[in-house]
């Protein structure tokens, strides 16, 4: 898919929020890939961690929010510790989760969950599922 880049596209409110929440300079990243290489969970992710930053640099936040990556991230901060440019990717992941949750979309409605499942499902997982549902 082609990406149309323009200053409006890059001047994205959500991106500004991510920078505000995480305190990270997204543009400092030079795409060396050390975060992805060191990430213990990257093999389970739809898109690797370094690509999350690349897409953010292009203002393509929607492309990230529909992936499981931000939910697979375990916040182990291995990436942040190793990053040569001091970009704290674990904080960016947290910011992305915040942005996602603040959209207030319920993916699972409690009334529609079948009774049998309600019996077995741990409560914490159920509540997490309402908004973090990752397909």
């Amino acid at each position: 898919m082609n990406v149309q880049l323009s200053s409006e596209e890059l001047d994205n409110e959500d991106i500004d929020k991510i920078i505000e929440i995480s305190g990270a300079n997204l543009f400092a990243c030079y795409q060396c890939g050390k975060c992805t290489a060191g990430c213990p969970t990257s093999e389970f992710m739809d898109i690797p961690p370094h690509e999350v930053i690349r897409l953010l640099q292009f203002g393509q936040i929607e492309e990230i929010l529909c992936k499981n990556t931000l939910w697979i991230c375990a916040s182990c901060i291995t990436c942040a510790v190793r990053c040569p440019k001091g970009v704290d990717l674990s904080k960016i992941m947290e910011a992305l989760r915040q942005i996602f949750l603040r959209k207030n979309v319920n993916y699972v409605h409690p009334n529609e969950v079948p009774n049998e499942e309600l019996q077995t499902l741990p409560q914490i997982a159920l509540i997490a599922n309402f908004r973090k549902f990752t397909h």
């Binding site: 082609n2 149309q4 690509e51 690349r54």
Partner: peptide
């Protein structure tokens, strides 16, 4: 790096 085609 992202595998995307860019148009400006």
């Amino acid at each position: 790096l992202s595998g995307k085609t860019i148009v400006i």
